[in-house]
């Protein structure tokens, strides 16, 4: 039976990161793109906690502290992004990222 090690967690985080990138590439709804960003942030936070568990000097919790900051910043980012999207919806009646191209024309 194999032992679960740091590499397994890093591979799980890499899969979640890849899924997040895939969401950002393939979705057109801006809120779904935001969900992809959340997946990527979670993958990064999982890496921090895994490194903290497997390679930090004993007794140190720096990786977990960074994860707390990531979660706080993700909350701030979600609140601001949704406020912007609400404004976009009021202006253009859509949250489709392909149609929000007023500045381009």
């Amino acid at each position: 039976m194999l032992d679960v090690s740091l590499k397994h967690y890093l591979l799980v985080a890499a899969l979640m990161f890849a899924a997040g990138v895939g969401v950002i590439i393939s979705r057109r709804n801006a809120i779904a793109v935001l969900c992809g960003v959340e997946l990527i942030l979670n993958a990064a936070a999982l890496n921090f906690v895994a490194f903290n568990r497997y390679s930090a000097p004993s007794g140190r919790l720096d990786g977990q502290v960074f994860t707390i900051f990531i979660i706080i910043l993700a909350a701030a980012e979600a609140a601001i992004a949704l406020a912007i999207l609400l404004n976009l919806f009021q202006q253009t009646n859509t949250v489709d990222v392909d149609e929000a191209d007023t500045l381009r024309e």
Partner: peptide, 25 residues
């Protein structure tokens, strides 16, 4: 795109020998 990104990340994860200390267990 996800497959390409994962391939690159997995190559890094499996290629670099991360030092596994005792950690917090």
């Amino acid at each position: 795109t996800a497959a390409i990104v994962f391939a690159v990340l997995a190559a890094v994860v499996l290629g670099v020998g991360f030092e596994e200390g005792k950690g917090r267990s």
